[in-house]
Design a protein around this nucleic acid. Structure first.
Lengths: 411, 411
DNA sequence: CAACTTCTGTCGATTGACTAGCAAAAGTCG
DNA sequence: CGACTTTTGCTAGTCAATCGACAGAAGTTG
């Protein structure tokens, strides 16, 4: 009976976590680690002055972090007349995370280190409609292959980030009412994956993780960033106050079905009319060009035409940019971001699309809102998703709780 | 020389705060207090099981909170056969905060307790354009008057929340480029006020604090809420993931100058054309009605007409609702809120405005986004701003840092 | 090479948060 | 009214984190 009650206590303790020492022997090492997360090398003395703790305290904490391998010496700093202090920094290769980008027809799986550097990648054609078990089985298998290929043990894996093409209840990792993922509705993705790989699993919408990826890649200091993906569909991921905003149902940023002025009457596959997606998505532009007698089948064809300098295609893409800009103008007023990054397959059409977006946003917005606003093509491009999934996993793994979990021997 | 370095250490300690015990003797009382913030009474045993700490530990912590007056006994709970446990809860009247709503022509100052209950209020005509010193001097003076009137000492004041009609850099409390507040640009409001009243001063945009007020009053569990103020101008405050979103320049939510379809060509005072504010604000509706030969001067007149059942006025207000709904549709897709509360003087026109908003939002949005979306008239109404300012102050005062500051004798 | 400076690792001492146990208090139940 | 139950306040004790100091290591400077 005593054991039972103790177990209950442990559980509630985790839920509230008021107790002082987190993991046995680890003390406040996880808090100290937060200072080192940025990867910048520091000396013990620097850490001592910054934290206000004694040098000896820092020493023991650094030691425990080094014992975990998370922190490594990075040579000595310059001497100021005496013995030069040694410097430490996050050791990105201490552990690895898995980053998966599951698309409708393709999946990419990568292993990255703790800085997000891709150590190994695997890309394969899948059918997301074949259901969660099939897709996730492939993922788990591919993970083993990939880890073996780069000669890393399963023990070194600390977290998994997964992006899926549909809305996700991020707290539980369950897709909710996904339009193009039959069989995935409310499926417990983390639960299933954890049966095979015993590490935390973070799931999110693909556009959301692309926003994370873009930020990590190109805008590490942007607290308010919006990533707009323009491909078969149109969606966006919103980072506000440094945090991904998911909304009440996890569908925040879903701007594909906002009505735009030029769209009057044009039917959208969602059942409504005049949606942005029915006007400015890859298929929509291709359709418009076909009406004008130009032989294009897909958005990809449109991009090719644009790259070859076809005037009609360029004009169509630019107009799509204007339509998107119309919606983004409202977004600029509402979110007041400092960066809007445009990605997705149609963004490969280069500056024409962005030019259309800028044209409208800069004309229609309040000067203050656009003064420091950058509207740019995604730099991370096709790597955005995997990088973002990696970031999702890394952020979790390197959080105080994540570090404490690593320090606890019994996993 | 030793003293100097010690002082520096103290400063940096505050910045990072890794050290264990926060204030002398207080230990983790501030963390325990976070559990009691909701005002619900609890027994020592309950707190012990929830936190996982020993009963004796809880006892000492509760004692220190009671010594500060923040927590008070609230009678006994039901006996389960033995001595009935005593229950404790947040004592809202332990301290007071000041809540100021500074408008263009009027200012309201209130003293509230820690639950946001107004203990005393003062309203006066001011001219915000008379500059920060004049307005804030009045505020400080009024504060003293108000505190004396309700027989409270300055010592009991723990924080001040101020709402101003313009964008604010919340981290510094400085207004930035406010259009209607000449002389306030980059003025250090907290610094100035703190010279007279030595407590933390929180400043924010008036619409932002109205969002906070509305949430506190009517939607305590809404993590994603949008407050739209429709009066002389149109603006909104956005709460996402439970936090007020301010954006890169502190102008997030500023939807007044988004273009809407019906507005083609209509000039706005911002210099652009077709802005929402030029169509759906109080003055705009009045202007349209005047064109139709109806004798109205202000938005307030329009509201009066609507209340008397004037068809033209009702139609105009409903159309304004539709225009606003057009912008809010994008907001719904982007933010995915669970509540949109409509306030401001024009909201007094009742359901007609809201009906127009609903008509458009529910028609044009994706079903999933509106499934659990409430679009309602503000319940807090004219009290929203003061209540929100109070919340801003209370949130700060009751945060772990705030409690620690209260516990530290030397202020 | 000697004197000096600065960093590193270790160890004992301190501190204070937390716990456990007990007697008294304040109820309920028969 | 007495037996029983549960909470409360108190006290002494435990334990882990942190600190300060010291000796040794590893440099610089003249």
């Amino acid at each position: 009976m005593q054991y039972e009650s103790t177990k209950t206590l442990c559980f509630t303790m985790r839920m509230v976590d008021i107790s002082r020492g987190s993991a046995l022997g680890t003390s406040g090492a996880s808090e100290l680690f937060q200072l080192l997360r940025d990867g910048r090398p520091r000396t013990r003395a620097e850490l001592a002055t910054v934290t206000g703790l004694a040098r000896s305290t820092i020493a023991t904490r650094v030691d425990s972090l080094m014992a975990l391998g998370l922190v490594s010496p990075v040579g000595d700093a310059l001497s100021t007349g005496g013995r030069p202090p040694s410097r430490f920094a996050l050791n990105p290769s201490a552990r690895v995370v898995l980053a998966a980008d599951l698309g409708a027809s393709h999946a990419t799986l990568a292993v990255t280190d703790l800085s997000g550097t891709v150590l190994g990648e695997l890309r394969e054609a899948i059918d997301i409609a074949s259901g969660p078990e099939a897709v996730l089985s492939w993922m788990v298998e591919a993970a083993t292959t990939l880890l073996a290929r780069i000669d890393r043990d399963h023990d070194e894996l600390v977290a998994i980030g997964i992006g899926v093409p549909g809305p996700v209840e991020h707290s539980t990792g369950r897709p909710v009412n996904p339009p193009i993922m039959p069989g995935w509705d409310r499926f417990d993705v983390p639960g299933w994956v954890q049966q095979h790989l015993q590490v935390p699993v973070l799931v999110d919408n693909d556009v959301n993780i692309m926003a994370l990826g873009e930020r990590a890649f190109a805008w590490p200091n942007a607290e308010h960033l919006m990533f707009v993906k323009i491909a078969t569909g149109i969606g966006s991921g919103v980072i506000s106050s440094g945090r991904l905003q998911r909304g009440a149902q996890g569908i925040a940023g879903d701007i594909g079905h906002v009505q735009v002025a030029r769209g009057v009457g044009i039917p959208c596959h969602c059942g409504n009319r005049g949606c942005l997606e029915a006007l400015a998505s890859g298929p929509a532009i291709a359709r418009d060009l076909r009406k004008a007698g130009i032989d294009v089948a897909t958005g990809s064809d449109v991009v090719d035409l644009v790259k070859r300098g076809n005037i009609e295609a360029i004009q169509a893409v630019r107009q799509a940019g204007r339509d998107i800009g119309e919606v983004l103008t409202t977004a600029v007023s509402l979110i007041n971001p400092s960066v809007i990054a445009i990605g997705g397959s149609m963004a490969r059409a280069g500056e024409h699309l962005i030019a259309g977006v800028r044209e409208i946003v800069y004309t229609r917005s309040m000067p203050l809102a656009t003064e420091h606003l950058a509207i740019v093509q995604s730099s991370a491009a096709e790597n955005a998703a995997v990088l973002g999934a990696s970031m999702l996993a890394i952020h979790h793994a390197l959080s105080p709780e994540g570090i404490d979990a690593l320090a606890t021997p019994a996993r």
